[in-house]
């Protein structure tokens, strides 16, 4: 199943609705068991955390699926949203304490999108340069590592290296039997899923989406058939900036803290999610993101934090070696090129 086939039609939507109903039923069943409430609570938190990984993993998978480019600046976009919003709320916005986050987060998302477009201008435009040996494909990868350093350290210079508390006074918890579900968390899970569904609709049904899919198949053929590749490629970066920005904003709303390094952890987990789901597959990134969120919270619950890391990465290493196409991915993507 390729990137294009993975997002076509309503079939996966029906499947995911079925899976969602199944999950709710399973959690309810687990919570009803004696002593199962704690575990069910972990599952709920894992899925909520997974919602944030889903958005970032989709940003990764979109860039790889369409452009065959592992964009290391994606975690930075996530971080920029949070840090810029915090900086605005702290230094620039004259507004009441209770609601400043709502004003500060949208500019943060805009900065993330702009940064992503800057990255496009200086990295991907040069991929088309041909230099005649195997390392040519490393060019955008290396440039994106350069941008990772630039953005992260500019933020360190301007806003300092400390983790900051960014309180969002918006706490509404929903008590369902023995379980506590944070409404912002539930809303963010739904919002990130909604954005992903919108994106898959965009890819499957619109003119831009068709152009993107044609570039994913073959940039040269797409150019021959009249797709303006240089006009369409920035759309990928705009979308990935938007996804990371929204994920960053949701992270702030849910966990109320920001730091210049907040993207690193989420970024590596999102890469793991993308690989588990299969490179280039949006539905795979959704499944992978939720799965990694679950693995992480359950791993911490049962084994503790550092052991959970070993579990996640060993699973990932095995997955890459034994089933590189992941759960849903096409085996074609990401092979010949970097």
């Amino acid at each position: 199943m390729s990137a294009a086939a993975g997002v076509r039609g309503a079939h996966p939507l029906v499947v995911s609705a079925g899976v969602a109903v199944g999950c709710v039923a399973a959690i309810a069943g687990l919570a009803a068991l004696p002593g199962g409430a704690t575990l069910a609570q972990q599952v709920v938190s894992g899925l909520m955390l997974g919602g944030i990984y889903v958005a970032v993993a989709v940003a990764f998978t979109l860039t790889i699926g369409v452009l065959n480019f592992l964009n290391f600046t994606i975690p930075t976009m996530f971080m920029l949203t949070g840090m810029v919003a915090w900086g605005l709320a702290r230094h620039g916005l004259p507004f009441t304490e209770a609601w400043h986050w709502a004003l500060a987060l949208p500019p943060g998302i805009v900065v993330a999108i702009l940064a992503s477009l800057v990255v496009e201008r200086f990295t991907f435009r040069y991929l088309k340069t041909r230099h005649g040996d195997a390392t040519e494909h490393a060019i955008p990868l290396v440039s994106s590592l350069g941008f990772l350093l630039i953005f992260e350290h500019l933020v360190l210079i301007v806003l300092g290296s400390d983790a900051q508390s960014f309180p969002v006074r918006f706490r509404l918890d929903w008590q369902v039997g023995p379980l506590v579900v944070g409404l912002p968390q539930l809303a963010s899970l739904l919002l990130s899923l909604a954005i992903v569904f919108w994106l898959s609709w965009l890819l499957a049904r619109t003119r831009t989406g068709r152009a993107l899919r044609s570039i994913a198949e073959s940039p040269d053929t797409a150019t021959l058939l009249g797709v303006e590749v240089t006009r369409i490629v920035p759309v990928v970066f705009l979308l990935s900036g938007l996804l990371c920005g929204v994920a960053g904003a949701l992270f702030v709303v849910n966990y109320s803290d920001v730091s210049p390094f907040m993207g690193d952890h989420v970024g590596t987990k999102a890469i793991a999610a993308m690989v588990l789901g299969g490179l280039g597959s949006i539905w795979g990134a959704i499944a992978g993101g939720l799965l990694v969120g679950l693995l992480e919270t359950l791993g911490i619950h049962f084994f503790g934090g550092d052991a959970a890391q070993v579990v996640v990465w060993t699973v990932l290493l095995l997955a890459i070696v034994l089933r590189p196409q992941g759960l849903f991915g096409g085996s074609r993507i990401g092979k010949g090129k970097l």
Binding site: I64, A272, K335
Partner: peptide, 18 residues
């Protein structure tokens, strides 16, 4: 070495994390 391209970058990255 069973993997190529992006997968190799990710596999070696995962190895270091493990």
């Amino acid at each position: 070495l069973r993997t190529r391209g992006v997968y190799m970058v990710l596999a070696t990255f995962a190895f270091a994390q493990v």
